[in-house]
Amino acid sequence: MGLLNKLDDPYEGGGIVLGKIEDLLNWGRSKSDWYLHFGLACCAIEFMAMNASHFDFMRFGTIPRASPRQADFIMVTGTVTFKMADRIKILYEQMSEPKYVISVGSCSNCGGPYWEHGYHVLKGVDRIIPVDVYIPGCPPRPEAFQEGMMLLQEKISHQAIFNKRKKLEAELEK
């Protein structure tokens, strides 16, 4: 929490924080991500356990939304078949920017156990939509879900909002 750490050396009188608007926006954005409530296969059962009492996913500020238009990120939890791939692409396109994707489990990372002979399985969801965080496992443990969520938060909190183009060009020149 880069912003709040600056409160540690307050100015005289207190209550003044010097920082970037970008940091403030990113801090807010990363701490309240709503996800699309949508499960595919086995990993969705672990995701249900993740939502329940022991692991309590909502403490990350996440709220399940049934509509992709209200969601910030989508968790692809399970095997993506060819028949389902179209739907996932449509769902992703319906989400409003900025949008993120977490690919959960071996199946949606790369095809997993269905990689070799699965004639009906998409070999990785990243072939149709861009993926931000990959969570390995078959199925991943709830602790792995937490790690993945924290990685996504970290990614969001370092993103550029203003002068995106300039920063990108500067990076490319390096």
């Binding site: 296969a41 095997t79 078949t81 269905y114 002979h117 699965g118 009906h120």
Partner: peptide
């Protein structure tokens, strides 16, 4: 049906 067809019988052959 068929949105989660994961080719079980094909895998069993192999």
């Amino acid at each position: 049906l068929g949105y989660l067809h994961r080719s079980f019988e094909k895998h069993c052959e192999k």
